[in-house]
């Protein structure tokens, strides 16, 4: 992305390099990390974060956010369990769940675009609401008796390799998302909206429509993740995927997507996702408690917001010092190149 400014490119390169370093260190120093089974666990457990990170990246690039994704996933899993208990066919249940996700996303999108509410506030509200509905739907039941071939697909791997079956459809979705964000007019308009919404509107970009599409896609992917989660862990409960939004947002920001919108690459975001996934896997292997893992995720979130910002400010300060003899430019823009 030439125009996403060199510093952003540098940041996602940094994250990519960091991922390689962490992988190498883990291979050489952590017992039990390098075998194919563990690696397939690593990927399988990271897939929920990765799936939601795809639309979340586009959303954050356009200057919005969706905190309700984990609740949508939980709701979708709960509805799946409830319908299964009622004897509905899984082939019918899954489309119903996906449709439900579309509705969840549509509600978020309409509240943001039609009523002009900030997405942070709207989706905190729906985070609670969707989870609440999930609990009403399924109560404290845990549904585990889904058809074996579905469970095998969601939890299994290809032969003795480290590649889970579910990784393949993810790669297809990843490719679609990369093309959509970085090569289509739609994606181009998202960067414009995130970096200057008013200017985007004055350029004829249908800002509200694009955002509505994004929220809807996010709902769809969150419900897909909910279905995958229930099958992968063979358990549909109302509290599935609780707190997942924290991991997704931490990973996306870690990958260099600017919280203020308009900057970043999907490659960086996915590198951030797998960096986080690898850290979580390693922490489990060396017996760090689940609670401590959440602390680490939280710290990473803060670091990932601070990191690119500090890097940028250092760059600006350096440019400022270079231009110290000449006057400051009366804008927040970097000084004109001589």
């Amino acid at each position: 992305m030439p125009e996403s400014l060199t510093r952003a490119v540098r940041w996602d390169t940094v994250v990519g390099a960091l991922l390689v370093v962490v992988l190498l260190l883990s291979f050489t120093t952590v017992d039990g990390f390098g075998n194919a089974l563990n690696l397939s666990f690593l990927i399988g457990n990271t897939l929920p974060i990765a799936l939601i990170a795809l639309p979340m990246t586009l959303l954050v690039v356009s200057g919005e956010i969706d905190l309700s994704v984990a609740s949508t996933a939980g709701l979708s899993g709960a509805v799946m369990g409830a319908l299964w208990n009622q004897g509905m066919a899984i082939e019918t249940i899954i489309p119903v769940c996906l449709l439900l996700g579309v509705v969840c996303g549509l509600v978020n999108g309409l509240l943001v675009t039609r009523l002009g509410l900030p997405s942070l506030a709207v989706t905190i509200g729906t985070l609670a609401a969707y989870r609440g509905i999930a609990q009403i739907v399924l109560g404290s039941d845990a549904v585990t008796d889904f058809p074996a071939q579905y469970l095998d697909f969601a939890a299994g791997r290809i032969g003795d390799t480290f590649v889970p079956y579910a990784f393949l459809p993810f790669l297809v979705l990843l490719a679609i998302a990369v093309v959509a964000l970085h090569a289509t007019p739609f994606g181009r308009s998202l960067f414009a909206i995130g970096a200057g919404e008013e200017a985007a509107r004055f350029a004829g970009i249908r800002v509200k429509r694009q955002k509505l599409i994004l929220f809807t896609m996010t709902g769809l992917m969150a419900s897909l993740t909910g279905v995958f989660w229930a099958l992968h862990y063979a358990s549909a409960r109302y509290d599935n995927a609780t707190g997942l939004e924290l991991s997704v947002i931490a990973a996306v920001l870690l990958g260099g997507i600017d919280f203020d919108g308009g900057k970043g690459t999907l490659g960086g975001a996915i590198a951030g996702v797998f960096l986080l996934g690898t850290l979580q896997n390693v922490m489990s292997l060396v017996n760090v408690s689940a609670q401590s893992q959440i602390v680490v995720t939280g710290v990473l979130l803060v670091v990932s917001v601070l990191g690119p910002r500090v890097a940028r400010q250092t760059a600006v300060a350096r440019a400022g010092r270079r231009a110290a003899a000449s006057p400051p430019v009366p804008s927040k823009a970097p000084a004109p190149t001589p």
Partner: peptide
């Protein structure tokens, strides 16, 4: 600055 241009974007874009 606010309506005519996306200031952080390139001239080309």
């Amino acid at each position: 600055r606010a309506q005519g241009l996306v200031m952080d974007m390139s001239i080309e874009r």
